[in-house]
Simulated scan of single mutants.
Amino acid sequence: MTGYLTTHVLDTARGQPAAGLTIELFRMQGETRTHIRTLTTNADGRTDGPILPKEEFALGNYELVFHAGAYLEASGMPPNTPRFLDLVPIRFGMAEPAHYHVPLLLSPFGYSTYRGS
C-alpha cells in the first residue's frame, strides 16, 4: 500500500464541518519548510482529494497550517484583536507508507488533533 494524507476539520463551537478553511502543507527538513500545496476545505470540512496523494507520498516530517483565524472571522465570530487562535500549525511524521489522517477539532479558544483512520 502506498501512503497518502487526508484531513477533516470540524467546528466544535458550531457543531458542523468547517467549510472554506485554508490549509497549507509543508515538508520539513530540520527547520526548513518547503511549501507543497494550499487547499481549502469543502462543505464537509474535508479537501476534495488527499492533501498528499499516493503518487506524491514520501516518508518524513510535515507541517499542516490551518488558517483558523480567517475561517472564524468568515464564519461570523466577532474578531478579537489579536484573535486568540490565528494559524494552527501541526507538525507530524510519517514513518510508514500508510494512510495518515490528521483531523482538527476547532473552536475559537482551543483545538485538538490526533492520528485518525
Rank of each mutant, 00 (worst) to 15 (best):
residue 82 P to H: 13
residue 75 S to H: 09
residue 11 D to G: 09
residue 104 L to P: 09
residue 22 T to G: 08
residue 91 R to S: 07
residue 41 T to W: 09
residue 57 F to G: 06
residue 21 L to K: 08
residue 51 I to E: 13
residue 73 E to D: 15
residue 74 A to I: 01
residue 80 N to W: 09
residue 16 Q to L: 06
residue 72 L to Y: 09
residue 64 L to A: 03
residue 96 E to I: 00
residue 87 L to P: 00
residue 57 F to A: 10
residue 109 F to E: 11
residue 47 T to C: 15
residue 47 T to P: 04
residue 13 A to V: 00
residue 92 F to R: 06
residue 54 K to W: 00
residue 82 P to E: 14
residue 109 F to Y: 14
residue 36 I to G: 01
residue 42 N to R: 05
residue 1 M to G: 15
residue 39 L to K: 06
residue 6 T to S: 13
residue 106 L to R: 10
residue 32 T to V: 14
residue 107 S to C: 01
residue 7 T to V: 06
residue 6 T to L: 06
residue 70 A to M: 01
residue 80 N to S: 14
residue 90 I to A: 08
residue 91 R to W: 00
residue 77 M to A: 09
residue 27 R to I: 08
residue 61 N to E: 15
residue 97 P to Q: 13
residue 30 G to T: 04
residue 43 A to H: 04
residue 41 T to F: 12
residue 25 L to P: 02
residue 6 T to H: 03
residue 74 A to T: 07
residue 38 T to E: 08
residue 97 P to L: 02
residue 113 T to M: 03
residue 98 A to P: 00
residue 68 A to I: 05
residue 115 R to C: 05
residue 59 L to Y: 03
residue 35 H to W: 11
residue 15 G to S: 09
residue 57 F to Q: 03
residue 24 E to K: 15
residue 62 Y to H: 12
residue 37 R to V: 03
residue 54 K to C: 00
residue 38 T to S: 08
residue 58 A to M: 08
residue 9 V to D: 02
residue 17 P to K: 05
residue 68 A to D: 07
